[in-house]
């Protein structure tokens, strides 16, 4: 009789490591689904902060960040779990580190942008290939464009710090998003067209932008190209806009500008 008992014990002993590689538990699937559908309170009902697998604890922390009441105490409770999870070297650790940075940027009552920036930077240094580190670089670049102290230096090239981070991003969709942000920031920060326009064009070339953002981008590149004297590019984008949005209220104005671009091209002998 002792032999089977021992083997049973051995089998149970093997279970935890096996569970790690096994498909996600029903509770975890439920938790991810609830998070995806913006129902963080359901996650807090299903999971605990101090028990369960690492993915379960990550789901709990993400839910804690978004559930009411959004007090600093609750954010600190989420941070405690995230800090523990971030000590690994896998994607989950990177995601936890990313979410910790988000806490300082968006969730504490008083945002701490330098601290958020420090965490994004540390994550990128530790796991540069991770998706979450790459996404963190996009957020870091946006902070550099608008709010970090070095962004207020008079006469400084306001786009350069973000462009430097762009070079570290290898995921095309994230490159696209940052190109677009640099281009838009260039407009807001009144930077020269020659500096910002290539970023908008690059964002468009990578593609996949949806909604009104796509329509805005095409017309914007057309108009700014015309202002910059890039007539052929302006013509291309105006024609594309009219093909894609023929019934839009802006179409009449775009047609007028296309005529103007064509007129200037003809004058230059390039039309």
């Amino acid at each position: 009789m002792p032999t089977p008992r021992l083997s049973c014990l051995a089998l149970f002993g093997l279970l935890p490591p096996l569970l790690g590689a096994a498909p996600a538990s029903p509770e975890l699937n439920q938790a991810w689904t609830a998070l995806a559908n913006s129902r963080p309170r359901d996650v807090l009902r299903i999971l605990d902060s101090d028990r369960g697998s690492r993915p379960e604890r990550l789901a709990w922390a993400a839910a804690r960040m978004n559930a009411q009441p959004a007090t600093d105490d609750n954010m600190r409770a989420a941070e405690k779990v995230l800090v523990e999870l971030a000590t690994g070297s896998d994607e989950l650790a990177a995601e936890a580190a990313y979410l910790q940075a988000r806490l300082y940027q968006m969730y504490f009552v008083q945002p701490d942008y330098p601290r958020a920036a420090e965490l994004y930077r540390a994550l990128a240094a530790r796991q540069p290939q991770s998706h979450w580190a790459q996404l963190g670089l996009v957020k870091l670049a946006m902070l550099k464009l608008y709010v970090l102290p070095d962004a207020t230096t008079a006469g400084a090239d306001r786009l350069a710090p973000a462009e430097a981070l762009l070079a570290e991003i290898h995921e095309p969709l994230l490159q696209r998003d940052l190109h677009r942000q640099i281009g838009q920031a260039g407009v807001v920060l009144k930077q020269p067209l020659a500096r910002l326009l290539p970023h908008l064009v690059a964002a468009d070339r990578i593609g996949g932008i949806t909604g009104t953002a796509h329509e805005d981008l095409i017309v914007q590149i057309g108009v700014l190209s015309l202002r910059a004297g890039l007539l052929a590019q302006a013509k291309d984008y105006f024609e594309r806009y009219l093909r894609e949005y023929p019934t839009n209220v802006r179409a009449w104005n775009v047609t007028r500008l296309l005529t103007e671009a064509n007129r200037q091209l003809a004058k230059e002998g390039g039309g």
Partner: peptide, 15 residues
């Protein structure tokens, strides 16, 4: 809320 939603969809995709 999109941070949690992103984590949710990422969890489902990883699973």
């Amino acid at each position: 809320p999109q941070d949690a939603m992103i984590a949710g969809w990422a969890g489902l995709a990883d699973g």
